[in-house]
Simulated assay, not measured.
Amino acid sequence: MTRSTQELQDITLLGNQNVVYQTEYAPEILEAFDNKHPDNDYFVTFTCPEFTSLCPITGQPDFATIYIRYIPHIKMVESKSLKLYLFSFRNHGDFHEDCVNIIMKDLIKLMQPKYIEVFGEFTPRGGIAIHPFANYGKPDSEYEQLAKTRLFAHEMRS
């Protein structure tokens, strides 16, 4: 099953050799494409081991692996645009918890997924590691219950 040129008309970053890397938070860079299997429930997982942002107080860099898992509905995020979007946090000053929630909310706005979760495994600084987890399930659906179940069962790491 191939995609038509019309289906791909909104995908502008993939294959583009002249992409400008944003260094300030840029949610507008995210691109989506149609899910050809909206009746199937399946997870899409992204592991982003090179995420960086800045501490909003000290300006020091924070490093993390960001894990994004979602069950698509009508739209899916294009991976190069996601990479460039995550790169745009490089000079963004925010707390770890804020970054994870912002990423999740921007992806919800873009795709309206059935379910999504974002987990940030931040490198320890000052002897403390922070690992925020945020998730969302489509309201009034079985995915809303899935979100509650996964949130309350989220694993604690020692």
Score class of each variant (00 low, 15 high):
Ala64Pro: 06
Ile108Val: 05
Lys148Ser: 06
Glu155Ile: 14
Glu28Val: 01
Ser81Met: 10
Lys148Phe: 05
His96Gly: 02
His92Pro: 01
Asn16Trp: 04
Ile102Glu: 10
Arg125His: 10
Thr12Met: 07
Tyr67Trp: 12
Ser158Asn: 13
Cys48Arg: 00
Asp39Ser: 13
Gly127Gln: 08
Tyr21Val: 12
Asn91Gln: 14
Thr123Trp: 08
Thr47Glu: 14
Glu121Trp: 04
Leu84Ile: 03
Val44Asp: 07
Phe133Gly: 07
Ile74Leu: 14
Val19Leu: 12
Leu13Glu: 06
Thr47Asn: 08
Gln145Lys: 12
Ser53Gly: 05
Asn135Gly: 00
Thr52Asn: 11
Thr52Pro: 01
Asn91Ser: 14
Ser88Glu: 03
Tyr143Asn: 01
Phe119Ser: 07
Asp34Phe: 09
Lys109Arg: 13
Asn135Gln: 06
Pro72Asp: 07
Glu142Cys: 07
Tyr115Ala: 01
Pro72Ile: 05
Met104Ile: 06
Val44Glu: 08
Ala153Lys: 13
Pro56Gly: 08
Arg3Cys: 07
Asp34Ser: 14
Glu142Pro: 00
Leu14Met: 11
Ser141Phe: 05
Asp34Arg: 15
Met156His: 15
Phe89Pro: 10
Thr45Val: 14
His96Tyr: 12
Met156Glu: 15
Ile11Met: 05
Pro38Trp: 10
Ser81His: 07
Leu146Ile: 03
Ile102Lys: 13
Thr5Glu: 15
Glu31Arg: 10
Tyr136Thr: 05
Ser79Thr: 08
Ile103Val: 10
Ile108Ser: 01
Arg69Ser: 08
Ala64Leu: 06
Met156Gly: 04
Ile66Val: 09
Ile11Leu: 13
Ala32Asp: 11
Gln9Glu: 15
Asp106Met: 11
Arg125Thr: 11
Asn91Trp: 02
Ile74His: 10
Leu30Gly: 04
Ile66Asn: 00
Met156Thr: 13
Ser88Gly: 05
Asn91Val: 02
Leu30Lys: 03
Cys55Thr: 10
Pro61Gln: 11
Lys36Gly: 03
Leu14His: 04
Glu28Lys: 06
Tyr67Met: 07
Ile74Met: 11
Ile102Gln: 12
Thr58Cys: 03
Pro72Ser: 03
Asp106Glu: 15
Asp140Ala: 09
Val118His: 05
Ser4Glu: 13
Asp10Met: 05
Pro132Ala: 07
Gly126Gln: 10
Lys75Pro: 06
Tyr21Met: 10
Ile66Gly: 01
Pro61Tyr: 06
Pro27Thr: 11
Val118Gly: 03
Pro56Thr: 07
Pro27Ile: 08
Pro38Cys: 10
Pro124Arg: 02
Phe63Lys: 03
Ala64Asp: 09
Val118Cys: 08
Thr12Tyr: 05
Leu107Cys: 07
His96Leu: 04
Glu31Phe: 08
Arg3Glu: 14
Phe63Ala: 02
Gly127Leu: 10
Pro56Leu: 06
Tyr143Phe: 12
Ile116Gly: 00
His37Ile: 04
Ser79Arg: 06
Phe95Asp: 09
Lys109Leu: 11
Leu110Cys: 12
Met76His: 03
Leu107Ala: 06
Phe87Asn: 11
Ile116Ser: 02
Glu31Val: 03
Lys114Cys: 01
Asp62Cys: 04
